[in-house]
C-alpha cells in the first residue's frame, strides 16, 4: 500500500444537492463511487489527487427504472445490479454481457456504471454496449441538468464532456425493438478478470430487407470508446448483397486507431477488429434472414 491515506481528505455529502454545491465550490475534488477503478492507482501511489467527494451514500444516484420506452440507470448502479436484472436481461443483452465480463463477482458488486464512464478508460467493457444502444447521459451541476448523447461524452483520452462542477447522474437508453440484432464480444487477455484487447458491440434492425438502424462501437482500439461511423454508413440502408466487405474493411481501418501497449499490439487489434466486425455482419444478416 503506497497510497498516502493520511494526506487524503474525503467529503461525504448527504444529498445530491449538497454534493453538487460542494463540487461547485471545490471543482478539483475527485468524485469517488465504487472505488474499483480509483483505488488501484491510489494504493499504488500513482494517483495525483488527495481530495475525494464520496458519492457512495447518495440514494438519488441509485436505482434502475425500466419503462416501455426507456431504461434509466442511476450512475451508482452496480454491474451486479445490471447483470442480474431480469428486465435488462430480456431487453438489453449487450449491457448484461458487458457487465458480466467486467471483472468478476466482487468487482461487479462494487463497480458502478457511472464510474466506468467517468473513469473513461478506452478499454472499459460497458461503453461499447451503451454506444451501440445509442445511450444518453445526464450531467448535473448546481446550474441544472443536461442530457448529452453518450456518443459525444468522450472527447479524447481520459477527456470527457463533463464541465467543471458537473456530475454524471443518470444513463438513459431507448428500449430496443423486439427482434432486433444484438452483438457483444470482448476479446480480452483471458476469459475472466480480463482487460479488453478489443471489444465490439453492435445493435441493428431491418425494414423491408434493408438495414434501418445500425450502430457498432469498439473498445480498446482508439483513445476513446468509439462508434465505427464510417463502416456503419456502408451498412445502413443496404441489404446483405449490397454491402461491400472490402469497402467496409477499408472504412473500419479509418474508424479505429489502435496502439501497441503491454497488453497487445496495434496490428493484432486491427486484425481482430476486422474479423469481429465481419463476423458480426455475417450474424446480423443471418439474423435478418
Amino acid at each position: 500500500m503506497k497510497g498516502d491515506a493520511p494526506a487524503c481528505a474525503v467529503h461525504t455529502p448527504a444529498t445530491l444537492g449538497e454534493a453538487l454545491a460542494f463540487l461547485a465550490a471545490h471543482p478539483d475534488w475527485r468524485p469517488l463511487a465504487g472505488g474499483t477503478d480509483l483505488m488501484v492507482p491510489f494504493a499504488a501511489g500513482r494517483l495525483p489527487d488527495f481530495n475525494f467527494l464520496n458519492l457512495d451514500p447518495l440514494h438519488e444516484l441509485r436505482g434502475i427504472e425500466l419503462t416501455n420506452e426507456h431504461l434509466t440507470l442511476g450512475a451508482l448502479t452496480t454491474y451486479s445490479e445490471i447483470r442480474w436484472h431480469e428486465g435488462i436481461r430480456a431487453a438489453f443483452p449487450n449491457l448484461v454481457q458487458s457487465a458480466w465480463v467486467t471483472g468478476a463477482a466482487a468487482i461487479q458488486n462494487r463497480g458502478t456504471i457511472g464510474g466506468n464512464l467517468v473513469n473513461a478508460s478506452p478499454a472499459a467493457d460497458t461503453p461499447p454496449s451503451l454506444l451501440a444502444y445509442g445511450a444518453e447521459v445526464e450531467l448535473r451541476s448546481t446550474a441544472g441538468s443536461r442530457w448529452v448523447d453518450y456518443d459525444a461524452f468522450h472527447l479524447g483520452y481520459k477527456q470527457t464532456a463533463l464541465a467543471s462542477g458537473e456530475l454524471l447522474t443518470r444513463i438513459r437508453v431507448k428500449r430496443p425493438v423486439p427482434g432486433a440484432f444484438h452483438f457483444y464480444r470482448k476479446v480480452g487477455t483471458r476469459k475472466a478478470q480480463a482487460i479488453a484487447k478489443v471489444c465490439l458491440a453492435g445493435y441493428g434492425r431491418a425494414e423491408n430487407g434493408r438495414v434501418a438502424e445500425f450502430r457498432a462501437a469498439f473498445g480498446a482500439v482508439a483513445p476513446v470508446p468509439k462508434r465505427a461511423l464510417a463502416a456503419e454508413a456502408l451498412v445502413l440502408g443496404r441489404s446483405a448483397a449490397e454491402v461491400d466487405p472490402d469497402a467496409v474493411r477499408a472504412a473500419l481501418a479509418e474508424d479505429i486507431t489502435p496502439i501497441d501497449d503491454i497488453r497487445s499490439s496495434a496490428k493484432y487489434r486491427r486484425f481482430v477488429s476486422e474479423r469481429l466486425f465481419a463476423s458480426m455482419l455475417k450474424d446480423f444478416f443471418a439474423h435478418l434472414g
Partner: peptide, 27 residues
C-alpha cells in the same frame, strides 16, 4: 499460451496480476 513477461530494458513492464496473465477458473 498466456504467461508473457513484457521486457523493457531488462525490467518487467507488466508487473501486475492484471497484466501478467495466469489462468482463472474460467480459462
Amino acid at each position: 499460451l498466456w504467461e508473457k513477461v513484457e521486457w523493457r530494458n531488462g525490467r518487467m513492464a507488466n508487473a501486475q496480476m492484471t497484466n501478467y496473465i495466469m489462468a482463472t477458473s474460467a480459462d
